[in-house]
Amino acid sequence: IGSLMYASIFGNVSAIIQRLYSGTARYHTQMLRVREFIRFHQIPNPLRQRLEEYFQHAWSYTNGIDMNAVLKGFPECLQADICLHLNRSLLQHCKPFRGATKGCLRALAMKFKTTHAPPGDTLVHAGDLLTALYFISRGSIEILRGDVVVAILGKNDIFGEPLNLYARPGKSNGDVRALTYCDLHKIHRDDLLEVLDMYPEFSDHFWSSLEITFNLRDTNMIPGSPGSTELEGGFSRQRKRKLSFRRRTDKDTEQPGEVSALGPGRAGAGPSSRGRPGGPWGESPSSGPSSPESSEDEGPGRSSSPLRLVPFSSPRPPGEPPGGEPLMEDCEKSSDTCNPLSGAFSGVSNIFSFWGDSRGRQYQELPRCPAPTPSLLNIPLSSPGRRPRGDVESRLDALQRQLNRLETRLSADMATVLQLLQRQMTLVPPAYSAVTTPGPGPTSTSPLLPVSPLPTLTLDSLSQVSQFMACEELPPGAPELPQEGPTRRLSLPGQLGALTSQPLHRHGSDPG
């Protein structure tokens, strides 16, 4: 009997000691992992102490058991019943959930998450997105703005933001810190809205009876308010094209079509300037034949640059190039080494500058006005007194259609001029006259002087055409309008007829 009692007592005591040691061994194993994590990542002392304290409290609170892992091991129907039991206190005593059906309560219970916070733990920081609604079931918390405590909340209090009033989550206007050990039930806004969409009859009752104890939403960050730039940057990543407008005076608003859609830094370009900076079609017209890549860069430059609305530039004389043409100036200075066709295309550029300027006046029909002061630039669209967005969009579309028509007509005119030049060069190729044979009589004449090349004649003739079109064909006081194609086609051969009437002889060394 004594040996039996000794064996039973010894066996029970050893089993008890073994169970104690097993729990202690698990605790030390998990604690060792936490300390190894702290050492590996070199976490500083204040945060390291918070980690160790939280682990110790969580171990004593749950005995080292992962409740979520245990809950996920059950089937979904059983999980709903378990969640309904775990959140029964909240669902029974909170006013917004009263009167809900059994199915609605089960769906809500599945969406709730339980959070346990030790003292000093910050649940929400200032500036964080308010993605959830919090219900306090135990403990107390404090809300701070800077170093000032603005509120202390306790059991059955609710904090967050009214989700039904805002389409997008706002930002917190303060820090939420736990004063004691707290148990909180939180539900994400997407989950709550999903359940309320499934039960629309409960939705009206819920929003009407929901009383948020403390609204954390920062009202200064609401979209459309003066301080909402940061919020707009976070939620409006896919922005449309940006529009900046110059201020319109009362006198300017009476004149229709007073602005032109141009790229940034293009205030001095012609009315047909689009795409790359520098001139019509993204580059100076005089350098068009020598740089074919300008047409390839036109599309990307047009689509990537934001639109700006600026006044037209001052008018340019008909014979003056659009500006920024070092290529043609070098050719004029060193005409001995340049291609003979460069002079002809220089005359073509003069005609283009004249036609572009006159067509700009035809479509816009307003006098040039000086540029406004820099303080009046970049007025935002949302400022008071601005035109409605639809009106601005319609004006932009009208300007775009005008620019497209202008570009089409300029292309047709350019093709006409090039065809005339090619026809003239085919009839009378460039050549130098040879020395004529002296006559049989004693009164022999001296050799004839060489005839100037055709490109120079073409430049003079085209300059005469531009001056003739600019000065004589337009009646005084009438708006400057571009001439039609047949009129220009008839004027060019008439001007060139006198020049080509002389018999030109080919030089023996000319390969053409």
Score class of each variant (00 low, 15 high):
residue 338 C to Q: 15
residue 143 I to E: 01
residue 172 S to L: 03
residue 329 E to S: 09
residue 251 K to G: 09
residue 292 P to V: 05
residue 173 N to P: 02
residue 326 P to Y: 06
residue 321 P to W: 06
residue 364 Q to G: 10
residue 240 K to N: 15
residue 287 S to Y: 15
residue 314 S to G: 04
residue 187 I to E: 03
residue 186 K to Q: 13
residue 337 T to D: 07
residue 498 A to G: 10
residue 200 P to N: 04
residue 150 V to W: 04
residue 148 V to I: 07
residue 170 G to C: 02
residue 330 D to R: 07
residue 379 I to R: 12
residue 194 E to R: 07
residue 208 S to H: 10
residue 298 E to R: 06
residue 193 L to W: 08
residue 162 P to M: 08
residue 203 S to I: 10
residue 139 G to I: 01
residue 410 L to E: 03
residue 313 S to P: 13
residue 211 E to W: 02
residue 476 P to R: 13
residue 290 S to E: 14
residue 470 A to K: 04
residue 314 S to N: 12
residue 472 E to I: 08
residue 144 L to T: 13
residue 480 E to Y: 15
residue 507 H to D: 05
residue 332 E to V: 11
residue 170 G to W: 02
residue 424 Q to Y: 13
residue 492 L to D: 14
residue 297 D to N: 15
residue 383 S to A: 06
residue 502 Q to I: 07
residue 208 S to Q: 15
residue 312 F to S: 09
residue 463 S to M: 11
residue 259 V to P: 12
residue 288 G to W: 15
residue 230 E to I: 13
residue 396 L to Y: 08
residue 450 P to S: 12
residue 229 T to W: 06
residue 306 P to Y: 13
residue 350 N to P: 11
residue 155 K to T: 13
residue 486 P to T: 04
residue 191 D to W: 01
residue 222 I to P: 10
residue 210 L to T: 06
residue 167 A to T: 12
residue 228 S to A: 12
residue 272 S to T: 10
residue 192 L to G: 01
residue 457 L to M: 07
residue 170 G to L: 02
residue 230 E to Q: 12
residue 393 E to W: 15
residue 237 R to P: 12
residue 366 L to P: 08
residue 285 P to K: 04
residue 510 D to T: 09
residue 220 N to C: 13
residue 329 E to M: 12
residue 139 G to T: 03
residue 155 K to I: 04
residue 434 A to S: 09
residue 240 K to L: 12
residue 421 L to C: 07
residue 146 G to A: 10
residue 168 R to P: 10
residue 436 T to I: 12
residue 339 N to Y: 10
residue 249 T to K: 07
residue 256 P to I: 14
residue 242 K to M: 10
residue 373 T to Q: 10
residue 181 Y to C: 03
residue 312 F to D: 14
residue 449 L to D: 12
residue 213 T to C: 05
residue 473 E to T: 13
residue 234 G to W: 06
residue 289 P to F: 04
residue 432 Y to M: 14
residue 229 T to S: 06
residue 146 G to K: 13
residue 154 G to N: 09
residue 461 S to H: 04
residue 284 S to I: 08
residue 497 G to I: 12
residue 248 R to L: 10
residue 282 G to P: 11
residue 128 D to K: 03
residue 398 A to Y: 05
residue 431 A to F: 09
residue 216 L to V: 02
residue 324 G to D: 09
residue 468 F to I: 14
residue 249 T to E: 10
residue 269 A to H: 10
residue 243 L to Y: 14
residue 481 L to A: 09
residue 473 E to W: 04
residue 261 A to F: 10
residue 500 T to K: 06
residue 347 G to W: 04
residue 162 P to L: 02
residue 212 I to P: 03
residue 274 R to V: 05
residue 404 N to D: 01
residue 268 G to I: 13
residue 171 K to G: 01
residue 408 T to G: 07
residue 317 P to N: 13
residue 348 V to L: 04
residue 340 P to G: 07
residue 413 D to N: 07
residue 294 S to W: 12
residue 239 R to V: 11
residue 447 P to I: 06
residue 140 S to T: 10
residue 421 L to N: 02
residue 244 S to G: 10
residue 381 L to N: 15
residue 243 L to K: 06
residue 203 S to H: 12
residue 130 L to W: 01
residue 171 K to Q: 09
residue 361 R to L: 07
residue 375 S to C: 08
residue 303 S to P: 06
residue 375 S to P: 08
residue 387 R to K: 15
residue 511 P to M: 06
residue 266 R to T: 14
residue 181 Y to M: 05
residue 344 A to K: 09
residue 207 W to G: 03
residue 354 F to D: 13
residue 334 S to F: 13
residue 300 P to K: 15
residue 388 P to T: 08
residue 456 T to S: 12
residue 437 T to Y: 11
residue 433 S to K: 04
residue 289 P to W: 05
residue 210 L to S: 03
residue 414 M to P: 03
residue 238 Q to D: 10
residue 296 E to G: 11
residue 429 P to H: 15
residue 332 E to T: 08
residue 336 D to W: 03
residue 309 L to S: 07
residue 434 A to D: 09
residue 358 S to L: 09
residue 462 L to V: 08
residue 373 T to M: 09
residue 497 G to A: 07
residue 265 G to Y: 13
residue 134 Y to F: 07
residue 372 P to L: 09
residue 133 L to Y: 01
residue 413 D to L: 03
residue 475 P to W: 04
residue 137 S to D: 07
residue 460 D to Q: 13
residue 189 R to E: 03
residue 362 Q to C: 08
residue 228 S to L: 12
residue 201 E to A: 06
residue 232 E to H: 11
residue 230 E to S: 10
residue 232 E to R: 10
residue 128 D to W: 01
residue 405 R to H: 05
residue 462 L to Y: 05
residue 214 F to G: 03
residue 456 T to K: 13
residue 209 S to D: 14
residue 129 L to P: 07
residue 212 I to D: 02
residue 377 L to S: 13
residue 147 D to Y: 03
residue 135 F to S: 02
residue 324 G to K: 09
residue 242 K to Y: 10
residue 456 T to C: 12
residue 185 H to R: 07
residue 333 K to G: 09
residue 165 L to F: 06
residue 327 L to M: 01
residue 134 Y to D: 02
residue 242 K to L: 11
residue 130 L to T: 02
residue 357 D to W: 13
residue 258 E to G: 10
residue 169 P to A: 07
residue 408 T to V: 12
residue 297 D to W: 12
residue 306 P to D: 15
residue 215 N to Y: 01
residue 206 F to L: 06
residue 474 L to M: 04
residue 454 L to C: 08
residue 177 R to L: 06
residue 299 G to A: 08
residue 348 V to W: 13
residue 418 L to V: 14
residue 217 R to H: 13
residue 457 L to C: 09
residue 305 S to G: 13
residue 203 S to C: 13
residue 399 L to A: 04
residue 282 G to W: 06
residue 166 Y to K: 13
residue 227 G to D: 10
residue 472 E to V: 12
residue 271 P to I: 12
residue 468 F to R: 08
residue 329 E to Y: 01
residue 234 G to Y: 11
residue 223 P to T: 10
